[in-house]
Computed example of a mutant assay.
Amino acid sequence: MNNLGQSENKYIDFVSDEHLLKCISNLHNSYLSAKREFTKKKFYKNKVDIFKLTFDSRFNQLSEEELIKLELSRQIDKSVNNAIGTFHEEVLGGIEGFNSGRFLGYDLKANDDSLFAEIKNKHNTMNSSSAESAFQKLARFANDNKNSKCYLVQILAKKSFCKKWEAIINGKEYSHSRVYIISGDQFYTLVTGKKKALFYLYKSLPNAINDFLKSVSEEKLNENNILSEISKSAKDNNRTILDEITFENFLYYKGFDRLK
């Protein structure tokens, strides 16, 4: 039992331990998939900014290995952002009385159709077209289900709030009496009935992730390690890691062939 007031489960008390670990496993698979698809060829595709890496390594006091790990993580991060939103959808779908439905037009709904939600991980992930589409979708759910309330959820919002979603999008005025926009903390409270539900999830994750990783093989954790590939190539060619990246990206530049 943890020290956050949950009495039955090891991690949080609004979804089962098994469900939370399954959500973590799904997210881990998304990370592995992103790493698997992110090859050295893709890393080099848009050309690595070797000057920025040089400044970063000196000004931020990073080793070459740390520097490249951060750069790889930054680029892979673009692929996993959506997966974080899916993680929240899946966690919330494990709450009694709710289910997630990524391929059914909604991210989360109450089993009695009293609530529908579109879930976004961050407040700035939608452009005007996607915002317009999201509002129209939620308005349709509200119109088709007269006793429902529909929410655009921003898991990571600029403040804690819940309000009617009223906006001018693409020059059109949008408003509906039962369409709301809500921050992640208040939405977790709404569907769990617990004021600090999102905080409890946050505090439970380190232990839950550690427990999950114990079941993952070392081979799988290190799958498609681009850094190892670059490091081996650098060692074979008697170059530093940064020089290896520079050579492989800019061999055709005058003078850079001296890195041979």
Rank of each mutant, 00 (worst) to 15 (best):
F135H: 09
R58A: 10
F187H: 08
S233M: 02
L104V: 02
L138C: 12
N111F: 02
H88K: 04
N121A: 06
K22H: 13
I68N: 04
N210A: 11
H19L: 09
F38E: 08
I181Y: 01
A139E: 15
R140Y: 07
N237K: 11
F250W: 10
M1W: 03
G255D: 10
L108N: 09
M126Q: 15
F103H: 13
A110T: 02
S130V: 03
S100M: 01
F87I: 02
N99R: 12
F51V: 13
A167I: 04
Q75R: 15
I169N: 07
V179D: 07
I76P: 04
P206S: 06
S100K: 07
F98H: 08
S33R: 12
A117R: 06
L104I: 03
D211N: 13
S114A: 09
N170D: 09
Y253E: 13
F43L: 15
R178N: 15
Q154A: 10
Y253G: 00
E90C: 00
N124G: 05
C150I: 08
Q186K: 14
V48T: 06
N124T: 14
L32F: 02
L70W: 00
V216R: 06
I12C: 04
D185A: 11
I169T: 09
G85I: 03
L115I: 14
V153R: 06
A34C: 04
F135T: 08
C150E: 11
F199N: 12
G193D: 08
I76Y: 01
L227R: 01
Y11E: 10
N2F: 00
F14T: 11
L152T: 06
K163I: 06
A234C: 04
E229T: 09
H176V: 05
S217A: 09
N60Q: 09
T192W: 05
L251W: 01
A208G: 09
V91K: 04
I76N: 02
F250Q: 02
K220Q: 12
E18M: 03
A83N: 08
E223C: 00
N238P: 00
A234T: 05
S215M: 08
S215K: 12
F116R: 08
S175C: 10
E37K: 13
I182Q: 08
N121G: 00
K47A: 07
K149L: 10
N170K: 15
K214D: 13
A208W: 10
Y11T: 05
Y253H: 12
K172C: 06
Y11S: 05
L221A: 09
